[in-house]
């Protein structure tokens, strides 16, 4: 049996994982792409279950999107999963949120990495770190991807201000 809707998957996951470790986020738009919000503690275990459990088999993580929510005060990463084995046409969407976004404490900007579960996240999580500043705690090689190593700041954040075009000569 193959379960595809996020509501069904949530029910199955809650049989195995404690209450509160995963919850449903409703999409208000026309596409109705609802997603599952994961708490950090059980996130990697849930991801492994989604990948390996024969009723899910989400063996392919397609996309990782970083997002910045300054009003709500957190950074978010969104993962789109598909099953190549079961040939699912609709993605299963996972999301994780950091504790804060303006904090100087690294733990507030951290979340677990899914690179150990799906290697396709490796470069994409580096990109999210580079452009948003999410610190993936278990990423094997967390370096900037697109900006150069000495670059300061995270340019995709909503409040990022680019430096002046022609800085005064030193």
């Amino acid at each position: 049996m193959s379960t595809t809707s996020p509501e069904e998957i949530l029910t199955h996951l809650l049989e195995k994982f404690p209450e509160g470790s995963v919850s449903l986020v409703k999409d208000t738009g026309s596409a109705m792409q609802h997603s599952l919000l994961l708490q950090h503690e059980k996130a990697v275990a849930i991801a492994n279950t989604l990948r390996d459990d024969p009723q899910f088999r989400f063996d392919y993580c397609s996309n990782v999107t970083g997002m910045d929510w300054p009003k709500e005060g957190f950074l978010e990463a969104v993962y789109h999963l598909y099953s190549i084995e079961k040939k699912t046409a609709k993605p299963l969407i996972l999301r994780m949120r950091t504790k804060g976004r303006d904090s100087k404490i690294p733990a507030d900007l951290a979340m677990p990495s899914f690179t150990s579960v799906w290697r396709s996240c490796e470069l994409q999580e580096r990109e999210v770190y580079d452009l948003y500043g999410i610190l993936y705690s278990s990423h094997p090689d967390l370096r900037r991807l697109l900006m150069w190593d000495e670059f300061q700041g995270h340019p995709m954040r909503k409040d990022y201000a680019p430096p002046a075009e022609n800085p005064p000569a030193a």
Partner: peptide, 22 residues
């Protein structure tokens, strides 16, 4: 568009080209 999000993909010549819009 109404507030919400959508991920859509297609088979581009090089592989899966997807756009995630919020």
């Amino acid at each position: 568009p109404k507030a919400g999000e959508a991920y859509a993909r297609m088979e581009s010549p090089k592989g899966e080209l997807g756009f995630h819009l919020v």
